[in-house]
C-alpha cells in the first residue's frame, strides 16, 4: 500500500512538471505575437514592453526562460504580475480562492448526499413511480445548462429581482470571515444550482452501477447468509458500487476548485473562475497562465487523491 502511494505521488510530481512545461510552451513559445507585448497588456508603450522583455528574461534563449520560469514558481511562488490589476498573480489568485472553495465544497456536499441517496433509492425500488419520477427529473437536471438554471434561480428567489425574494442574489457574496450569515445567504442559490446538475448525474451513475452490482454473485451470497436486506444493500451493494462515484467526485471537485466559471459569472462571485474569465477578456497573459496552472494543479491532486482512495476501497488495486 505504502509502495503504491509513493509511486502515485512520484507520478503526480512528474505530471505537474509536465503540465508546467506544457503551459510554458503555450504561453512562451507558441504565441505568434511578441510575448513581451502580450504580457504588457493592450496599451503599453514601447518602453514598457522593453522593460518587461528584460525583466522576464524574454530576451534570453528559450531554455534560460524555462529555467527562470521554474525558478520563479518553485522558489518564490512567482507567477508573474497582472498588468491589468498591477498585482502579483499569486496574490490575486489566493485572494479569490476562498470564494471558489466556498462554492465548490458547499455544492459538493449537497450533490454528494442527495445524489447518493436518490441513486440508492432508485436502484432498490427500480421501476417504481418514485424511481421513474426522480430519474426523469435527473435527466432534466443533466440536460439543463448551469447558467440557465442559475438565471432561473435568480429570477425566482433572488432578493433583488426574484418573484419570491428570499435569498441572496447576484453579487451578494460576503467573505465568511467578515459576515458568516451573509456568506451563507449568498451561497445557497449557487450551491443548489451547481448541485442540481451534478446530483442528477451522480444519482443516475450510482443507480446504474448499483443495479448491476445487485446482480453479482456475492450479493446472492450475502442474502444466502441471511443478512437483512438493508445490510445487503448498504454494506455489500453500495460499498462495491461507490467506486465510480469516488472517481467522478474527485475529478469534478478538482475541476471546480480550479474555477466554477459559469456559476461565478452568473452569481457574480469573485472566485477563480471569474478571475480567469476577466483575465481572458483583458488578455492578461500572466493571470491566465496562473489560473491555468492552478486548475491543472487541482485536477492532478484530485487524481492522486482518487487513486489513493480507490486503493483503500478496493483491495485488489493495491497489488499492481
Amino acid at each position: 500500500m505504502t509502495r503504491y502511494i509513493i509511486r502515485r505521488i512520484l507520478w503526480t510530481l512528474i505530471l505537474m512538471v509536465a503540465v508546467s512545461v506544457m503551459t510554458f510552451v503555450i504561453f512562451y513559445v507558441l504565441p505568434s505575437a511578441d510575448p513581451a507585448q502580450l504580457r504588457a497588456g493592450r496599451h503599453a508603450s514601447p518602453q514598457q514592453i522593453e522593460e518587461i522583455r528584460h525583466k522576464y528574461h524574454l530576451d534570453r534563449p528559450l531554455l534560460d526562460q524555462l529555467w527562470f520560469y521554474f525558478q520563479g514558481i518553485v522558489t518564490r511562488g512567482d507567477f508573474g504580475i497582472s498588468y491589468v490589476n498591477d498585482q502579483p498573480v499569486a496574490k490575486l489568485v489566493f485572494s479569490r480562492l476562498p470564494a471558489t472553495i466556498s462554492v465548490a465544497i458547499g455544492a459538493a456536499v449537497l450533490w454528494l448526499v442527495s445524489g447518493i441517496a436518490i441513486g440508492i433509492i432508485s436502484a432498490v425500488r427500480r421501476h417504481s413511480r418514485l424511481d421513474r419520477t426522480t430519474m426523469s427529473l435527473a435527466l432534466v437536471g443533466i440536460s439543463a445548462p448551469v447558467y440557465w438554471l442559475g438565471l432561473v434561480a435568480l429570477y425566482l428567489f433572488a432578493n433583488d429581482i426574484g418573484l419570491i425574494p428570499i435569498l441572496g442574489g447576484s453579487g451578494s457574496y460576503r467573505p465568511i470571515t467578515v459576515d458568516p450569515l451573509g456568506w451563507l445567504n449568498s451561497m445557497i442559490l449557487p450551491w443548489i444550482v451547481l448541485a442540481i446538475a451534478f446530483a442528477a448525474f451522480y444519482s443516475r451513475l450510482l443507480r446504474g452501477t448499483l443495479i448491476e452490482v445487485m446482480g453479482e454473485d456475492y450479493i446472492r451470497t450475502a442474502r444466502a447468509k441471511g443478512l437483512p436486506e438493508r445490510t445487503v444493500v448498504m454494506h455489500h451493494g453500495v460499498r462495491a458500487a461507490i467506486t465510480p462515484i469516488v472517481t467522478a467526485f474527485g475529478l469534478d471537485l478538482g475541476a471546480l476548485l480550479g474555477g466554477a466559471v459559469l456559476v461565478e459569472i452568473v452569481f457574480n462571485i469573485p472566485g477563480i473562475g471569474r478571475l480567469a474569465y476577466d483575465a481572458i477578456l483583458h488578455s492578461d497573459l500572466f493571470l491566465i497562465q496562473g489560473t491555468v496552472l492552478l486548475a491543472a494543479f487541482f485536477v492532478i491532486v484530485a487524481n492522486l487523491v482518487v487513486d489513493v482512495v480507490y486503493a483503500y476501497l478496493d483491495p485488489r488495486v493495491r497489488y499492481e
Binding site: 454473485d217 451470497t221 476501497l313
Partner: peptide, 17 residues
C-alpha cells in the same frame, strides 16, 4: 442458519472488498 448454500464460482461469490 437452517439451510445454507454454496455456489459454483467461489471467486465471484465472495465479496472482493
Amino acid at each position: 442458519k437452517g439451510i445454507a448454500m454454496i455456489f459454483q464460482d467461489p471467486l465471484s461469490s465472495l465479496h472482493p472488498f
